[in-house]
Amino acid sequence: MAEVQTFQPVTASEIVDAAKNMLNEGYRLIQLCCTKTPSEMDIIYTFEKTDLQSQNFKLPVNIGDTLPSISSVFFAAFLYENEIHDLYGVNFTDMAVDFKGTFYETSVKQAFSITVAEDKE
């Protein structure tokens, strides 16, 4: 249970190179996850090897930022990137398949970027 987890910081300009490095080392992408707190917003990239080792990267972003897509390195990334674009309002350039905001059509745009802090009614 007590598996030590590190979240290695990375910046937007480095992420594609970092992804290429991971690919060369035999890792594969298992998830992209955007998280929003009242003060900050991060995207977490999780990579995994076939021997089940995993590594996390943390990329701080803001709403409206434009990031380079890693779907040229890991094809599967386009789904996660479209999801983050629709729910958090972070833009990605050069996605393998760009849904242009129609992946999740929510009645409130960028629904997850608003933090609900008030108590349960």
Partner: peptide, 12 residues
Amino acid sequence: LERFRVRTPTFA
């Protein structure tokens, strides 16, 4: 919690 995310198998 601030964020909870599920990456389900079908998504992958």
